[in-house]
Design a protein around this nucleic acid. Structure first.
Lengths: 198, 198, 198, 198
DNA sequence: AATGAATGAGCCTTCATTCAT
DNA sequence: AATGAATGAAGGCTCATTCAT
């Protein structure tokens, strides 16, 4: 007794299963079969809806990026000044959600995937550029455009760096301390800028 | 035409082939067969010398880590003051060798590998700790221990962050500019320290 | 042209093919690939249904044991007195089915398998114990328990002994004569018991 | 510094290693490489001396059969009457040496081997026939030739049967009791013969 | 006398993918 | 809408065997 309107439900279930499965397996050993089983459907159905394994992975990637974007927007909602907005982005980047092992593993997998899949690469670049634009947009109000770009670059790097280092150490390096380091970096850069305008 | 004393030669060739193959394939599709073929031997021989695919990957990882260590030492040789030494480590981290696509791809693979292989994880941690100790050792001469640790942490994160971002953009982000950003970060941190001792 | 409900059909075909293949090859050279080909399916399907080569072999073993059990039951159906029942078990043990080369070869293989596989060993022990219990149960009505056990042990040994000797001689040692030897052994033991009660 | 006269030493070492290895591995997983390693030589040398793996196995088989023959002869040395001689053969068959796990495993392997190797089959038949002749020779002095053959057949079967059953049960069925069963079988057969000459 | 070097062949197993139902 | 059936292709690994030294 097939029901109608199942497509979005199945898609969501499969995407969620993919994320869990990637996180669970430490990003390797991800199998369409396992994903489908976790979603409670046959692997044939997974192919029916997504066409190929790559498309499933891509969809999961989009989902994770979207969630990250939502976190950023949520934090930005309460920010009024440019500085607050930049710090809100930093806070969102270090949101505890992002550091769940499954999410970290997924990111790593996507980085690897991006090396072979043009689609995956594009997705990742879109994410990176949006983060960059957001930062630069607000930083421009605090300094000149060149410095803004440079600072944004540095901030994004520190964030990514802390992030990937997280993937290795079981002992979660203190998230709060990390945030303070990043914000301190930001403050110093802006101070320096104030004293020695480019 | 078998000769004697081939083992070290084969091992080297296989390790080199592994690095190239990983870099070439973007870390997926790495096959013992392909590695062996690239090294000009049978896959059976690869197993004969290394025992398993994991051991081959691990050996390649060790090699890359060792090369990185050599670069660091080379740079340190010409450094006299603590500040120069820290900057030497930064320079080594951004050595052009490290940014060859193959090397970057290998690193990514190893990060992924580390999520499932205890051995790989240990190797990566050893590398991270050695970098950390080196930085802290010299920074301690420029500031107190707590600040030194914090700065070292930040430096290492920026380095790793730039590194991983590299894996995505084909257009090599300006290495020289990056180095200057990192050094500026260092300088600012030390200045801040000078003005507001903890 | 995939149809539904194929699983039991394939399982049977694969088990049958396994028995034939083992018998045909003399127990060595048994390959999942060959078994599958003989069953008319791909080796992947064999794994799909059984999980591993060991499970396939085990399933074949169970089948042979089950067939043997059926032969025993068939013979027992027409037996009324305890003595007739014991002789029925003997008859079943020497049923012509059991002496088909394939079956003999399978048994040998299973004995070997049992030395390394706990599952196989258990299966074989279950079979041995069931035979033993059956014999003892009826012999107890003809003599005391200790003698019954001893006689049952002797009978089982003779049966197995004739059986394994069969594996060597192409010229089938006269089955009928063998049966008479075994029954004579039984008769003598019971007579001796009658004369010298333990 | 190659020495001369090593051949017999190496052969012996390899044969001994083969027996141990078969017993150790439970008859499967026997590898020329493992055998050679246990013998302290290269696998190439094993091939040099024996030509092929089959030949190595065959040589080990011959050795075990020879040892068994020696045990028989040793027991026969102290036997004077025909009945004593028959019982001596029984004793030798149940010699504790024959029940070492390695030896049992080897026998099983040889039975399997015999199904595919004409040489192995011949060896095993030679052994069986020699045992048979020995038994018949002495039994003829106690009864007529037909009965002698039948009794010999029964004895050999019981012996083989107990033997193979041994391969399955870890709890060594009481060797002494077994011997008594077999001898009792012999006694009963001869008594029966005395009363009802064929 | 002895071995390290090397390989081809083969095996078990996995998996993405297709198709008829 | 959904799935069981089925497979081709490939991968990791083992091993008997050969050969030059």
């Amino acid at each position: 007794m097939p029901k109608i309107g199942m497509e979005p439900i199945r898609r969501k279930a499969l995407i969620e299963a993919t994320i869990l499965e990637i996180g669970n397996a430490g990003s390797l050993n991800v199998t369409v079969g396992k994903i489908a089983k976790r979603a409670g459907v046959s692997s044939a159905l997974a192919h029916h809806y997504f066409g190929s394994k790559d498309q499933i992975l891509l969809a999961a990637m989009r989902e994770i990026l979207a969630r990250f974007g939502q976190n950023v927007n949520r934090e930005l909602a309460g920010a009024n000044t440019p500085l607050q907005r930049v710090e809100a982005i930093i806070d969102a980047s270090f949101h505890v959600d992002n550091f769940q092992p499954q999410v970290v593993a997924s990111w790593l997998t996507f980085y690897v995937l991006a090396q072979n899949s043009a689609d995956a690469q594009r997705l990742l670049q879109v994410y990176a550029q949006r983060l960059q634009s957001n930062l630069v947009y607000d930083l421009c109000k605090l300094t000149d455009r060149d410095k803004a770009k440079r600072i944004a670059n540095g901030l994004a790097s520190i964030i990514d760096g802390f992030y990937i280092r997280q993937a290795l150490q079981k002992s979660t390096a203190d998230r709060v301390e990390t945030i303070s380091i990043v914000k301190q970096y930001l403050a110093l850069q802006l101070q320096a800028d104030a004293r020695t305008p480019s």
